[in-house]
Write a protein that binds this DNA or RNA. Structure first.
Lengths: 233, 233
DNA sequence: GACGTTGTGTTGTTCAACAACGCACCATCC
DNA sequence: GGATGGTGCGTTGTTGAACAACACAACGTC
């Protein structure tokens, strides 16, 4: 074998061994997003450190990572708490989604059919999950769809930002998931969005997405409001 | 005086004492953005801690904050370096700006004249700075203008994200600032954008902003490219 | 009931030490 | 000469303990 030159597809290779604190952050994050640590849960440093078997300083760094992603709320000398979104937060998050995804749809309107195939695969997965009645996988596919949409903007930074927004929204959804929703409706909605994009009807697609978000906003606001009342009492 | 009730405009009050690490992060950030710590500068923990007079752990937390904002780049056991943007980064940042500000202009089209007054004040400041020949203040006003624009989207999270993007762009600009630019042109450009918004010509305004960004992209890419060549050698 | 005090538990910060790692330097060997 | 492989040094990653600073609740006083 010859020497390794820059054409050997090793360009983008990045060996990033995760530091301990990052691994802890990942673990705690998934616990939060799975609802195993519901909003309002206090994250005390000493118990966490002991239960995982690492130092308190390392836990501190991990918690700070999550704080910067909005998943936990930090206040001086009071520690970290799994974020309990307010109604304001929900409005904020939906607005951010609206802005990003609307722009993304316009960008997707100029995409080639080949680039749109990514959406098709996700919709297929959504359909399969619906047939299986696997609500978790459906929600995952739902989010993948919108993430894929945003990726048409071609900015990794926007992608990352959108992911943090999605993570924050999951703070609400981990509770009220498998509620009274119709699986087939979810599939149809996304298929419609895909078709509108492929057909060049971007304005119509944006409007449709708007209704989709209006709906989500109503439900999430109810959840947040119930939390706030519960907290005021 | 009577007791303090919830009508006394103390609702939004938030006493946020900054932790030491946050203060350090702020200090280092301003040093970076002023160009006192040019891209590529290594941030070693021990010298930093000793020069400021605080512990190494506190410095670590501060540096991690900056890393998460993209101002410094962290790699395992290699420490932190003031980020040196690549051409890819520049393209990314401009795309993010384009997406956010385009959407913001559409949102601003529905704003009342009263809400648009904030833009006028910034333009006034821009004019004053131009008369004084104070380029730093002009750049500040320039950024304030675009930040105000994004704020029309009504999402604090988008505002914060936009601020980090601006901060990253300053990584380039701290070097090539007071170059060959015409102050009056900058003023006219922003006044034009304001007028187009106020006149309801959102599409025209977005197009104009696009040219503005195309221009910025060209110049920033040149800077980034020169750095990369310098680094490859 | 309003107000000050104390006590308890938590976080914020520091310090010292060691392990793990990157890197430049040098010796070695074809 | 150039590639290979060790060696030492400086830096970061992580730990553990200690103390200070603070929030909060419980108590006692007026």
């Amino acid at each position: 074998m010859g020497p390794v030159t820059s054409g050997d597809s090793l360009d983008g290779l990045e060996i990033r061994r995760a530091s301990t604190s990052d691994q802890v952050a990942d673990a705690v994050r998934t616990m939060i997003l799975r609802g195993q640590l519901p909003p309002g849960t206090q994250l005390r440093e000493v118990p966490l450190a002991e239960s995982i078997g690492i130092s308190r300083n390392t836990v501190r760094e991990a918690v700070r990572v999550l704080a910067r992603q909005g998943l936990v709320t930090h206040s001086m000398h009071r520690g970290a708490v799994v974020t309990r979104l307010t109604e304001h937060d929900v409005v904020d998050l939906i607005r951010a989604r609206r802005a990003l995804e609307s722009q993304a749809i316009e960008a997707a309107g100029a995409a080639t059919p080949d680039e749109l195939r990514g959406l098709d695969e996700i919709i297929l997965e959504l359909e399969r999950a619906a047939i299986d009645g696997d609500w978790d996988r459906m929600v995952d596919a739902d989010w993948s769809f919108h993430r894929r949409l945003v990726s048409f903007l071609g900015s990794p930074r926007l992608d990352r930002f959108f992911e943090t927004i999605q993570a924050e929204m999951r703070l609400c959804l981990s509770i009220l998931d498998r509620e009274d929703d119709d699986p087939d409706e979810l599939v149809d909605e996304h298929r419609e969005l895909r078709d509108l994009i492929a057909g060049g009807a971007t304005d119509r697609c944006i409007a449709r997405l708007g209704e989709h978000l209006d709906d989500a906003e109503i439900r999430l606001r109810l959840i947040a409001r119930s939390w706030e009342e519960q907290n005021t009492q």
